[in-house]
């Protein structure tokens, strides 16, 4: 969207904004969907290791058709490459790495995020069962949880809420949220605006957010 001069961030820009927060030396786990776009971001000379829940440590970009190795996938089932120094472990060791606190940040998609840092991403309203995957392990045990999501639903309802209405994935763990409108940090009573996307005013962001926004 911004690429054509209109306001707000597109999905790649949302991912870029969070990837810019990754610090040199971090071990990063990217969830399925928009978060995988973080691996496209130019991270300069920062040394980042991408961990996939299926035990692939140190994977690189998705390979084009014809060049992929069918024995090698990331958490989203994409055929990725390996960086020099990569290693493979089994699932229990991979989640031992997660529960053991070695993941500096996990980036996940979500349906809702609350002012208290809760988030919901595994079950829709009225759904029987759901799709948990590795989200609950990562949410409970990573050092930081970043969320990427569209600011509102297709009906225009805020996905940033005082309290989650859907069953939560974990409570009080989210520290940073990127949406198409900007970068926000849950602060208990609402969200602190860390940055607004180009062309987005504070008033517009507040009008589209069902919890109080504050600056700085």
């Amino acid at each position: 969207m911004s690429a054509t001069g209109t306001k707000g961030w597109d999905r790649q820009q949302m991912a870029d904004r969070l990837a810019n927060e990754f610090q040199d030396g971090w071990i990063v786990n990217l969830g399925v969907g928009i978060p995988t776009l973080c691996s496209n971001t130019d991270i300069g000379d920062r040394d980042i290791i991408y961990h996939a829940e299926n035990g692939v440590i140190g994977y690189g970009p998705v390979l084009p058709a014809g060049q992929e190795d069918l024995h090698l996938v990331n958490a989203g089932g994409q055929n990725v490459s390996l960086h020099p120094g990569a290693a493979i472990v089994h699932h229990a060791d991979s989640f031992g790495i997660i529960r053991g606190g070695r993941i500096d940040v996990t980036v996940m998609g979500a349906y809702e995020v609350s002012a208290g840092g809760d988030f919901a991403n595994w079950k829709l309203a009225g759904q029987l069962g759901g799709g948990i995957g590795g989200a609950m392990d990562l949410a409970a045990c990573a050092q930081r949880v970043f969320i990427i999501l569209e600011h509102t639903t297709r009906k225009g309802e805020s996905r940033l809420l005082p309290h989650c209405t859907l069953p939560v994935t974990a409570r009080g763990v989210v520290t940073l949220v990127a949406t198409n409108l900007g970068l926000f940090a849950p602060n208990g009573g609402g969200f602190t605006v860390r940055e607004l996307a180009p062309g987005v005013s504070f008033e517009e962001a507040q009008a589209k957010t069902a919890a109080p926004l504050t600056t700085g």
């Binding site: 699932h91 229990a92 989640f95 997660i98 759901g130 590795g134 609950m136 392990d137």
Partner: peptide, 15 residues
């Protein structure tokens, strides 16, 4: 019937 288990918990229950 279905029992829904977080992935890391599933792995550790098997281990």
């Amino acid at each position: 019937e279905a029992e829904l288990v977080p992935q890391g918990t599933l792995a550790e229950r098997l281990r």
